[in-house]
Amino acid sequence: MSEKENPNAIRTRIWREEAEPDNPFATRAAYCRGYDVYGEMLGQARWVEMLYLLFHDEAPSAAQADMLEALAVALTNPGPRDASVHAAMCGGVCGSTAASSLMAALAVGAGQLAGGHEVFLAMQGWAECGDDLDAWRKRLGKLDAITGSIWPAPEHAPGFDPHGVSTATSVRQMLACLAGYGAGSHLLWLQQNLPDMEAAAGCPLALSGVAAAALADLGFTPEQGEMLHLLLRLPGAAAHALEQRPLGYKKFPFGTVELESEESK
């Protein structure tokens, strides 16, 4: 039966497999974008090269791979103060399943405050405005809600820290490091125009904003960037969730509730 006629066929440009002669369900060879994964890439390719290749037709250049690796290091652990990691630790302290801790990190880290959707929106900005300061000023000056969306209306310029006072040193360091790879124009431009961009946004640049510019420089679409941001921040959530497990809920912040009446809101 040809692929066209086969109702069970899965279409993909990413992956092809050849079966063992004795079992159509066992893989003799797997190819990612044409490269033999287990026969050639394994032991030769870096994790970030494979990661990049999954989302692009071609393998990354050396500069792109280096930059993606640096970005991955920057995003790997948002730290225990981050809400997504806090959510994962809520699973850890009570002995919830491993997957549910990561689901918690994903659910909380998906949002528009330091999360995946913020990166998506910021990357839409790069797609729309590029390196044009006037276009950015126009975009950052208005926070449009998409009516009928499952997402809440944006409350701050995506990629910037609504509670920030000045650009955090860690953000500056990440921007400087990633811009240094010269893998695209946006990071360098952002570095050069940071005061104007922050003035237009009304608050300082956040890590999510650097990540968005970096992902755009690497040629990822906003949809791909959102996925990668979700994915690359999980290791820290996993480590912190596991660390909290033996410590237990008694050593984890619980807080107190001050009950207000319904009328007082």
Binding site: S96, A107, V108, Q112, L113, W151
Partner: peptide
């Protein structure tokens, strides 16, 4: 964090399968 309600509640239900 301005995520969606479905994501938040689905993850919260998943975490409810705790050991304590």
């Amino acid at each position: 964090c301005r995520s969606t309600g479905t994501l938040g509640m689905a993850a919260a239900l998943a975490v409810s399968e705790a050991s304590i």
